[in-house]
């Protein structure tokens, strides 16, 4: 009994939350979108999903092996990146492009910046933008709604019905069309307290309001345009990435407001038909500054002694 016991600093207990647990929740929250995509676009949609996940996890494992870093794939963040990337791609994308995109996401955007937590921008988003620039046509086919519109105002006549938009019964990327599935994932993330409401709500709300004014106060058309394209997928799952979004409530609001505005500006006034990815990427870069601007007030003003 007189043996020495372990000495350590407090606290001696922990909440039990873990990075892997959070990532597992994100994976679960994306299951409805993946299932919906498979139903809508056929079983071939499972191929890019499988290839992206395997490639992302594989590249991270390989990178850690080569640079002799501790293995990190068990934190599931690479799997999340893979799944998110796949859900942002069309079902008929050549699989070699998936591999190249995954390589870019994991190695260039994440691992070279120090691995999980070190990246400045969201790996899946950045890889999507990279693929859009590199493989042009293939990726653009993921934006059927806006592609026809060009620089002219979008016409409601060319949009699917509200019900089709809600159920995802139209062309687009695997995971972005079914609004219902994305909302289910959103609710799951809120219930599990993985994310807060701020970013998705403000992001989607901003896009809706901007569009509402832009199309001349037509609520139905504004709603259609908000549901079409990647706004829900981006706002709920990509813009809420911990590493690349602000931590405080006000920071999140500013981030989401900026992303929503940029999405609309690019969509309606830019040369690209879809702006969600660019908007999030740009706000990712501003995140360290937003974090500095929106720090919590210290209790009692933190007045110096």
């Amino acid at each position: 009994m007189s043996s020495l016991t372990k000495i350590s600093v407090s606290p001696h207990i922990h909440s039990g939350r873990s990075t892997a647990g959070i990532m597992r929740d994100v994976l679960i929250s994306l299951v409805p979108a993946a299932v919906a995509g498979t139903v809508i676009f056929g079983w071939t949609a499972l191929l890019p999903i499988a290839v992206c996940i395997i490639a992302c996890v594989g590249f991270e494992a390989l990178f850690n092996l080569i640079v002799k870093k501790e293995q990190t794939v068990s934190d599931l963040s690479a799997a999340v990146t893979g799944l998110l990337l796949a859900l942002n791609l069309p079902a008929n994308i050549p699989l070699w492009q998936c591999v190249v995109g995954s390589l870019f996401a994991i190695v260039v955007v994440k691992c070279l910046f120090g691995g999980i937590g070190g990246n400045l921008v969201n790996p899946a988003i950045t890889a999507r933008v990279f693929m859009l620039v590199a493989f042009g046509e293939m990726a653009v086919s993921a934006f059927p709604v806006d592609a026809v519109a060009g620089a002219t105002p979008l016409s409601a006549a060319k949009l699917p019905s509200l019900l089709d938009l809600f159920l995802g019964n139209y062309g687009g990327a695997i995971g972005e069309t079914c609004t219902l599935a994305l909302l289910l994932g959103f609710i799951y993330l809120l219930v599990r307290r993985v994310i807060t409401w701020h970013i998705p709500t403000v992001f989607i709300g901003t896009v809706f309001l901007f569009t509402f004014f832009y199309v001349g106060f037509d609520a139905v058309e504004a709603l259609s345009l908000t549901m079409a394209g990647g706004v829900f997928l981006g706002a709920i799952f990509m813009a809420t990435d911990y590493v690349t979004s602000p931590s405080t409530a006000w920071g999140k609001v500013i981030f989401a407001l900026g992303a929503g505005l940029l999405t609309c500006l690019i969509r309606y006034f830019g040369v690209y038909p879809e702006g969600v990815s660019f908007a999030i990427l740009f706000m990712n870069i501003l995140t360290p500054y937003i974090n500095q601007w929106t720090r919590h007030k210290v209790f009692a003003g933190g007045v110096k002694a």
């Binding site: 939350r17 959070i22 990190t72 937590g117 911990y242 931590s247 405080t248 210290v298």
Partner: peptide, 17 residues
Amino acid sequence: TACIRCGSCVNTCPFGL
């Protein structure tokens, strides 16, 4: 493990640190 900048610490501190 590595910090994932989730902000939990920031949003939990009683004194807003």
